[in-house]
Design a protein around this nucleic acid. Sequence first.
DNA 1: CGAGGACATCGATGATTGTCAATATGGCAG
DNA 2: CTGCCATATTGACAATCATCGATGTCCTCG
Lengths: 117, 117
Amino acid sequence: MMITTQSPEMADAETCVLAPSTAALDLEYATKLSRTLKALADPARLRLLSIISSSPTGESCACDLMEPLGLGQPTISHHLKILVEAGFLQREKRGSWAYYRLNPGALADISGSILSL
Amino acid sequence: MMITTQSPEMADAETCVLAPSTAALDLEYATKLSRTLKALADPARLRLLSIISSSPTGESCACDLMEPLGLGQPTISHHLKILVEAGFLQREKRGSWAYYRLNPGALADISGSILSL
DNA sequence: CGAGGACATCGATGATTGTCAATATGGCAG
DNA sequence: CTGCCATATTGACAATCATCGATGTCCTCG
């Protein structure tokens, strides 16, 4: 009959219970992970990765990326740089063209980091 | 012996080859996915998810989240709202407290979306 | 009812970001 | 060497964002 102390909302009548829980990611790791996620969190960059990853040769020339996205050349170059710096793409220059390919494992890595939050 | 047309860098002498490849994510999906990723791409929000997910009860009171992150109450509330709207957290108000818990599957979903880029 | 606490919302502000036009760099053809 | 093409970098600008202080809302307790 009598309700005992099952409900957690009154235990100290002062604080709102629950573990002290300093179980947060440390700031440094959280910042690093957020930087990697930020690199992914843009429609243009997601589409770039998609195009490159679905290319039959596994790579795409920068010149082929401007048209399907409808963005200017400096903008594409900017996005590609961000993706390379974040480790998602590898860049190889052949002649006067720049070819980009997926960095194998990079997507799996970030995917795993999210899952283990 | 003679090298034939193995190397792709000369085929039309005008364009830089490779498939037309309109294989980009459609803009709508890319925008939607990028919005979800943006919700994750912040150190404070990653730490919030980490704290909440590692709580023994599976949930955390908002009042317990300010202190470990060293941020003001409006800021925490702001981040929690973003995480709820992105589908990562569920909010339940009990008494005058607000409790947050992980939305099961949300992290797995975004993780899968990344893997299938 | 009235005071106080927990949380949300608002308004402002400094920082970051996506985009473009203009310019620089570097390779290739004549 | 000269000019052209592909790409990268720079500078500027509007938009978005993280944060805070102030205020509003709602609940609880006396």
